[in-house]
Amino acid sequence: MQETPFCLRVGHLLPYSMSDSNTTNFTNPSTFILLGIPGLEAAHVWISIPFCTTYVIAILGNFTILFIVKTEPSLRGPMYYFLCMLAISDLSVPTSIVPKMLCIFWFNSRDIDFNSCLTQMYFTLNLPVTQSGIFVAMAFDRYVAICDPLRHSTILTNPVVAKVGLAIVLRGAMLVLPFPLLARRWPYCRTNIIPELFCSHISLVKLACADTRVSSYYSLFVLFCVMGLDVIFICVSYIQILRAIFRLPTKDARLKTFGTCSSHLCVILASYIPGLFSSLMYWFGQNLVVHFHVLIANMCILLPPALNPIIYGVRTRQIRDRLLRLFTHKGT
């Protein structure tokens, strides 16, 4: 059975043939070999520049969001607590894969331990599930704030927000845990060469000498029954929000209220559009060269963590004002 992509963000399929790699007769290798970007080895140093730049922007941007929320008392609310959760998740995946990417680009260090490979896979699968839950929590927060503002502070109390955050983290951790557990049990008797920059789930599925249908069916379950329900809940929430906004008496009131949701909507689009593009490339771009697949798929993973803090910094007035005051005080 052909492997179905687990999620829009990380479920890309690389159109390579095993005949292009060295095959061996081993089972359960202790290490894998990451080729990087096949066909563009000579340009690895130059390619590392946008990857490194994007990673630095993601690190600085998300740490800035965390610092501003921590130091600004007026930003102690459910919306900003969920934003901090999003910032932490945006820090985790790039940190789990980019350092190894840069080692490949700069030092030609291609070996990766089997357990480290599984850890990389776990984090890249955990991110979309966790972020999907955070987006649902943010949508619910905006729904209560706009449709039932008088009860917002009584419904989303700090203990409730803490429980919701814990539930989101546990849901992502438990739902993704079967993937590395299944991958650990598979024999790998074809090759230990992965023509990518990191260990993705689909790459291990392609290398396994075992029946991987259970993993494929479980991928479908997580994609449609979990993340699909999250998208439906987000859409229903915003339909109710838009209905409430259009019932407001003046245009200024409608624009001001919609502005409180604009950053959340932009972040959702920034997360889902690259994933949708990667998924379309998976289905319709099989004739594209391998290195194009690798480049696009990796940038689709790295761009949202870099864009999210910029979007919130630009479109959220409270964060923007606090950031301006911070730089103004430093300048004087």
Rank of each mutant, 00 (worst) to 15 (best):
T53C: 11
T53E: 02
T53P: 03
Y55C: 00
Y55D: 01
V56Y: 09
V56C: 13
V56D: 02
I57N: 02
A58V: 01
I59G: 01
I59P: 01
I59C: 08
I59Y: 04
G61A: 07
G61H: 02
N62T: 01
N62E: 06
N62I: 01
N62Q: 07
F63Q: 08
T64N: 07
T64W: 14
T64A: 07
T64Y: 07
T64E: 08
I65R: 01
L66C: 07
L66D: 01
L66W: 09
L66T: 05
L66R: 12
F67G: 00
F67M: 09
I68R: 11
V69W: 08
V69E: 05
K70A: 10
K70C: 06
T71K: 15
T71I: 04
E72D: 10
E72A: 07
E72M: 04
E72S: 13
E72F: 03
S74A: 12
S74T: 11
R76H: 09
R76I: 02
G77M: 05
G77T: 13
G77R: 12
G77A: 14
P78Y: 10
P78Q: 11
M79N: 09
M79E: 09
M79S: 07
M79R: 13
M79F: 12
Y80I: 00
F82W: 12
F82N: 06
F82M: 14
F82L: 13
F82A: 10
F82Q: 08
C84D: 09
M85H: 12
M85C: 14
M85S: 10
L86S: 11
L86I: 07
L86D: 03
A87Y: 06
I88C: 13
I88L: 15
S89G: 10
S89E: 10
S92C: 14
V93I: 12
V93P: 00
V93T: 15
P94Q: 02
P94E: 08
P94D: 04
T95Q: 05
S96Y: 07
S96A: 15
S96E: 06
I97V: 15
I97F: 12
V98Q: 06
V98W: 02
V98E: 03
V98Y: 03
K100E: 02
K100Q: 14
K100T: 01
M101Q: 06
M101R: 00
M101H: 04
M101S: 00
C103Q: 12
C103Y: 05
C103E: 13
I104Q: 03
F105A: 01
F105S: 02
W106F: 14
F107D: 11
F107W: 14
F107C: 09
N108S: 13
N108R: 13
N108E: 12
N108K: 12
N108I: 03
